[in-house]
Nucleic acid binder design. Structure first.
Lengths: 109, 109
DNA sequence: CCAATAGATCGATGATTGTCAATATGATTT
DNA sequence: AAATCATATTGACAATCATCGATCTATTGG
């Protein structure tokens, strides 16, 4: 599906009225955060000491099935919030801090 | 419906793994922002010069029907992002900046 | 090669939700 | 009190999506 999220859009919400196109794009990004499972997965990747997290260590603590976790991680990757690198049998995820910063900036007045 | 959103929860996402309850609560808040119509309505209220905005001035520019706008504004009010004050026949909305700040802080590492 | 393992994809399903037309509520005006 | 106006509520429907079991793909080790 891969909705190809744009990185360039969107003034802060207090900077003027959002046009429909930007609103759709931004809403799509917030939609990614609008799920408990994804928020938990994101926080796991964000707070791991080594900077990267193996998919194998996400399934059990998340309390979701393996296919569900895989699905959510794909959504996070497509949204640009994390990167996935496959090494051997394992998939390693890293946070993309700039993407969080971008979202923070949108919520500025 | 009024999901009674809590104001007290949630460390920054990078501060540790979110527990399920906090994740549900936070996701509920992001869900409010995960809709183009609501984002536009919020940006209209956020960027009005006088600080308050009449519901009557939201319907036509939002491109949605009056019931739909009323619905979305209720969602924004319930989420604590705006306040509603009824004066006479009109409903006036004001941004709650602290609520946006709260969300910004959650996205901090 | 073969078995085992990690992860991705597919298909189905139940729940949620954005939307509007119709109607209700409540305030103002004549 | 009747008519009008702004907004809220209700009911219904289509679309989206989180979830899981089953299966597929790819990599490793024997």
């Amino acid at each position: 599906m891969k909705t190809e999220l744009n990185l360039t859009c969107c003034e802060p919400v207090g900077a003027g009225v959002l046009d429909e196109a930007s609103a759709v794009e931004l809403a799509g990004l917030f939609k990614v955060l609008a799920d408990p499972a994804r928020l938990r997965l994101l926080s796991m990747v964000a707070s791991v000491g080594t900077g990267e997290m193996c998919a194998c260590d996400l399934v059990e603590p998340s309390g979701r099935s393996q296919p569900t976790v895989s699905h959510h991680m794909s959504v996070l990757v497509d949204a640009g919030l994390v990167t996935r690198e496959k090494r051997g049998k394992w998939a390693w995820y890293r946070l993309v801090p700039e993407r969080l910063t971008f979202l923070r900036d949108v919520l500025t007045l």
